[in-house]
Design a protein around this nucleic acid. Structure first.
Length: 297
DNA sequence: CACTTGACCTGTCCGC
DNA sequence: TGCGGACAGGTCAAGT
């Protein structure tokens, strides 16, 4: 899915469009992508005003002027696309999408009283939109366990080292994909940050020297800021709230670049499988000392 | 607990 | 061209 930079890009777009809008109706493929009790929807979503769009890790939170919030996880292929008040003839920048949405991957559609619409599309149906009592969000298991935001101040080197100590026998890639270690890293930015830090993705976490852990700790927020500046990464599905693609992959160092030269040394980038995920790395810049590998594929 | 694998879905691409 | 299998950006549950 969208990883942190993509979800944050979507959040910024939604924050421009949604606050102040009043939900008129919702249609969905419930319960699959919209697992909510119809009575809760009627009471706490229909007629509610959206006040703010927040994000924690890869989860979006639509704050409502009721006791509930709408949490959204896009997983691998989710999209949230807003179509403005086209009936007013206002020339919204993505009016060209009119007629293209809904499409066959549209799982939920939220209509607002001003005739604008938010489409939740998700080809693989892994994502969801879920009403949660706002006061209980911090008690939800995921939010209790999730690690620090890499672009925030709590992501200190000390906190990172302490968290990594819990996963010392797994690969460093599996460790940084673990949302309880650091929030928002997914497959793209795991590969990119490990390349910046010069760490082989399959290296056992406990064997990565402190010097490299420091580089990795700096690389994770750096690569996310760079991606954010380019509107995120669009490989196949990702678009922002206005339907635009992100361009980070044009600048990617290793992700989806197997067979191409490493931007640092020119060696040919390889693709392997680590932690069950397709993994891209430079065999020259990211060496694996003998016996420092983790015993899974 | 720490760790790995498989499941959840649909679509696409690749080799035969 | 058709068909089977592998694979795709994320998390969970369930197994060891």
């Amino acid at each position: 899915m969208p990883e942190l930079p993509e979800v944050e890009t979507i959040r910024l777009g939604l924050q421009r469009h949604l606050p102040g809008l009043i939900v008129k109706s919702v249609s969905s493929d419930a319960p699959k992508s919209f697992p909510n009790d119809p009575e809760l929807v009627r009471q706490f979503l229909i007629g509610a005003t959206i006040t703010k769009i927040d994000r924690r890790a890869k989860v979006l939170l639509f704050e409502l002027n009721t006791d509930y919030s709408l949490s959204v996880h896009l997983k691998m292929t989710g999209q949230l696309v807003f179509i403005g008040r086209e009936r007013w003839g206002g020339g919204h920048p993505n009016d060209s999408l009119l007629g293209e949405l809904p499409d066959r991957s549209t799982r939920a559609t939220m209509h607002f009283t001003d005739e604008s619409t938010l489409f939740f599309n998700d080809q693989r149906k892994f994502g969801w939109m879920r009403l949660v009592p706002t006061a209980e969000i911090s008690e939800i298991d995921f939010f209790r366990k999730v690690g620090p935001e890499p672009l925030g101040t709590e992501f200190s080197l000390a906190a990172f080292r302490k968290a990594l100590a819990r996963r010392k026998n797994t690969s460093i890639k599996a460790a940084i994909l673990d949302q309880t270690i650091v929030a928002g890293v997914g497959n793209i930015y795991a590969d990119e940050s490990l390349h910046i830090a010069g760490i082989h993705p399959a290296m056992r976490t406990g064997d990565v020297p402190l010097k490299k852990i420091k580089l990795l700790h700096a690389a994770i927020p750096d690569v996310m800021r760079l991606s954010l500046a380019h509107g995120g990464s669009s490989d196949k599905n990702y678009v922002d709230a206005d339907g635009n693609k992100g361009s980070y992959l044009k600048f990617a160092r290793v992700f989806r670049r197997e067979g191409q030269p490493c931007p640092d040394c020119g060696a040919i980038i390889e693709k392997i499988r680590v932690a069950g995920r397709g993994t891209h790395y430079c065999p020259a810049c990211q060496k694996l000392p003998r016996a420092k590998k983790v015993n899974h594929t």
